[in-house]
Design a protein around this nucleic acid. Structure first.
Length: 413
DNA sequence: TCTGGGGTCCTAGGACCC
DNA sequence: TCTGGGGTCCTAGGACCC
């Protein structure tokens, strides 16, 4: 059997346990970003008004005017999450860390009777509550898909068991959009075909969905029949990419600000890759314009890297291939083509490697913002406007990044 | 004062190779 | 008397998840 454990309004509940003043009140937890704009999580008192995570704060306040907005504290959530998973591991070794606030457990109960499963679910809930004072919801079934749907349906603070023999009946009246893996677009397509509830998929042959939607269609057919993975993944998979993105405080077409932000994002990506000893050979730059249109540029290189400057150089050369006609809202840098080991690079710069090592060591000891490429500062000091000296300095940095200087000139600058 | 940030997976077209 | 079929890799975009 698979048990899905899903914390209730996780970030908001953590804030409420740390701050008694917030208890019993509608709370929005915002992202820890330059623009407080979306609700990362909200308390059940706010959910009552129809507020959902992912909504803009403005929208949320319209529905629930008195809500208290709290800036998110990632460290708290990570710490609490670890304590929760430690509790889960006391029940079985087969625990999958699905996300910061969700996990799957695989169990082999000698006795699968309803009361036994219910008792097990309750003891998991109690153990988590004892450790963290938080509540969670638990779904139990024979695969991950149904277990996850069940925990969602019994929120908050519930337990739901769906035995194998009950799955067909359970899926019959379940709206397709409740199924993890079926998003808004697929749900719309299915609705157009006259399929609103999973049960209605029974009249559709697998071959038809496969023909219409390819691999996705096949998946949807199985999902709607209540089938899904039956094994938990104890090992977290190797990462495929490292990326950071940033929504600017103000939309801009100022190339200095754009480069400065790319520089910081490259630095963040590089640091994380080095921390985990990964290298990559593909750089992607993502842009979102003020009108919300988006584009991305990507390039593959024949060698592997993880240093800030290389990432930044490639990211800036990619941005220069895009003619920026509109103001930019968001920038993202990510590195993929990940390999764990270093492929010997012909152009390896050992002096630079030592410098990076020193920088990383300092940042590890004294905090992440102790040493960093100075170009990162531009975006931060751009409000209020920079001095002439700054502007001059950064115009040189811009030339470096766009490869307008020769090696000797670059060194001098 | 509309719409964050971290990811994975899939698709489709084109270049290129045998 | 026009140009098959198999494959891989690359880029750009989009759906979906938490």
């Amino acid at each position: 059997m698979i048990i899905h454990v899903d914390m209730d309004a996780f970030f908001a509940s953590v804030e409420q346990t740390f701050n008694p003043f917030l208890r019993g009140k509608p709370v929005f937890v915002s992202g820890n970003t330059a623009r407080d704009s979306v609700i990362a999580a909200c308390s059940y008192e706010a959910k009552k008004y129809g507020v959902k995570s992912g909504m803009s704060i403005v929208e949320g306040l319209n529905m629930c005017p008195g809500a208290i907005i709290v800036r998110g504290n990632p460290e708290k959530y990570i710490d609490t999450s670890q304590r929760i998973f430690n509790v889960l591991k006391t029940f079985t070794e087969k625990v999958e860390l699905y996300s910061i606030d969700e996990g799957f457990l695989e169990i082999n109960p000698e006795n699968m009777r309803h009361e036994n499963l219910m008792r097990l679910g309750l003891s998991i809930k109690n153990a988590i509550n004892k450790e963290t004072s938080l509540t969670c919801s638990i779904g139990i079934s024979c695969n991950k898909t149904v277990a996850k749907i069940a925990s969602d349906l019994c929120k908050p603070d519930g337990i739901m068991i769906v035995n194998e023999s009950e799955i067909r009946e359970f899926m019959k009246t379940l709206p397709v959009e409740k199924v993890p893996g079926i998003g808004p677009k697929m749900a719309e397509q299915l609705n157009l075909m006259g399929i609103e509830f999973c049960g209605q998929i029974e009249k559709i042959p697998l071959s038809l969905l496969k023909k219409k939607f390819g691999v996705r269609g096949e998946q949807v057919w199985y999902l709607c029949h209540g089938m899904g993975e039956t094994k938990v993944r104890i090992q977290s998979p190797e990462p495929k990419s490292f990326g950071h993105s940033y929504t600017l405080r103000n939309d801009t077409d100022d190339i200095n600000i754009i480069l400065s932000v790319l520089c910081r994002l490259s630095h963040q990506v590089g640091m994380r890759m080095r921390q985990e000893s990964y290298y990559g050979n593909v750089v992607t730059v993502a842009v979102r314009y003020s009108d919300f249109t988006a584009c991305s540029k990507r390039k593959t290189y024949p060698f592997w890297f993880n240093d800030d400057q290389t990432i930044f150089r490639y990211a800036s050369s990619l941005i220069f291939t895009e003619s920026i006609m509109k103001k930019i809202r968001l920038l993202g840098v990510s590195v993929s083509g990940i390999h764990k080991r270093y492929q010997m690079n012909l152009f390896r710069d050992e002096k630079r490697e030592r410098m990076l090592k020193a920088m990383d060591a300092i940042n590890e000891k004294y905090g992440n913002d102790t040493v960093f490429p100075c170009m990162m500062l531009y975006e931060q000091i751009a409000y209020p406007p920079v001095t002439k000296t700054h502007a001059f300095m950064f115009s040189d940095l811009k030339k470096i990044s766009s490869g307008q200087f020769t090696g000797a000139q670059e060194k001098q600058v």
